[in-house]
Write a protein that binds this DNA or RNA. Structure first.
Lengths: 192, 192
DNA sequence: ACGATTACGATACGGTGGGGATCGTATTAG
DNA sequence: CTAATACGATCCCCACCGTATCGTAATCGT
């Protein structure tokens, strides 16, 4: 899928990187709405044809530019429930409030309706997270820190949703105090 | 603003209604992305010019079609905190999961970046709601049912965000059990 | 060394849609 | 009767997407 095959001229790897960089720059400069394939190609020093050879459409390119694989990096679950939740809240906030992600998110969400593949790509990342949190909740339930019915999916949706609304309303509201308040509500909200 | 003035041929009021109805129909049938001004005009039995006379752009028309003023209708705050929160959760869910709203929401959110007026229009509706809930929280705090720092804005953002994510992931997950679980978390989350 | 295959830049094209303009006609206030 | 505005119909301009073409360049298998 990533490597085409053995014959023919190989793709110039610098083009892929230049295109992603150009997309990130333009996202911040002009926003998602005014982002065009030709503009990305122009800034990347190549042409549309080379981009369509790599991504099926502009939203796919933007998705890869705004949400690279390393974004949801390793975070560690520990022994204190509130600290674990705070870490996830802060991580989600940081991922959503980066200039590139904040510029790309609303537009990408709109494309999800017509590009199910993108939809799945973004949400499947949180699937593993949900599983880990579910395990953590089970442990917390045994320790008497959480009710047994606590659902990682519900908590995740609340958390991601609040961060998303925050980005739409104004990213400046998503400071550390915000993360603390949200974490407080969620932590107490799943107590037995 | 709504009434033009005294001179000249008055606008045909049936056109405004027909356009909103046509936009609602087309939103459900083809989705936001494939919705065009010409298609709305065609189905409404008029032309683009008549529509641009009434709305400055397609997103404005869609916004008015998907979120009419009566949508956030009167709900009543009572004496039981959880019941009040459940009412707001259910009301928000119902507003977001209507076929028209679910089809329009993602696209509209994307336009908010470029149309601040739309942005303010939607969120200003919740401003009054936030105020009412803040009063309710203060009363709950005095009754010992809520911590004094409970913020209506935080709770609203969590709630709206969760409903929004639900619409994006799959509206079928937003059943009454979902509303109950979310309400449980929020209710316990603001307890003293 | 050589043909097959694929990528490259440059350029062009068809199709679609937004937003506005024009024109002749219709409807209202004063 | 006149000024002002709305109407349907039509036309244009412009931007963009997605694809195609063409000559050239790079890399494979043999």
């Amino acid at each position: 899928m990533t490597t085409p095959r053995g014959a023919g001229r190989p793709r110039d790897p610098r083009i892929e990187q230049a295109a992603l960089d150009a997309a990130r720059d333009l996202l911040v400069e002009v926003g998602y709405q005014r982002l065009t394939m030709a503009a990305v190609a122009g800034r990347a020093g190549t042409t549309k044809a080379a981009l369509y050879r790599r991504w099926p459409s502009l939203p796919h390119l933007v998705y890869e530019a705004a949400f690279p694989d390393e974004l949801l990096k390793d975070w560690h679950l520990g022994r204190e429930l509130r600290a674990d939740l705070l870490g996830i809240v802060v991580g989600t906030r940081d991922a959503f409030t980066s200039p590139v992600a904040a510029a790309a998110l609303p537009g990408l969400l709109a494309e999800f309706s017509t590009h199910p593949a993108l939809h799945n790509a973004l949400f499947s990342r949180f699937a593993g997270v949900a599983e880990a949190i579910d395990d953590r909740f089970r442990a917390a339930a045994e320790a008497g820190e959480a009710r047994p019915t606590a659902s990682a999916q519900d908590v995740l949706n609340l958390m991601i949703g609040a961060a998303l609304i925050g980005v739409l309303v104004g990213p400046e509201t998503l400071d550390d105090a915000w993360a603390g308040r949200i974490t407080d509500i969620l932590t107490d909200g799943i107590r037995p």
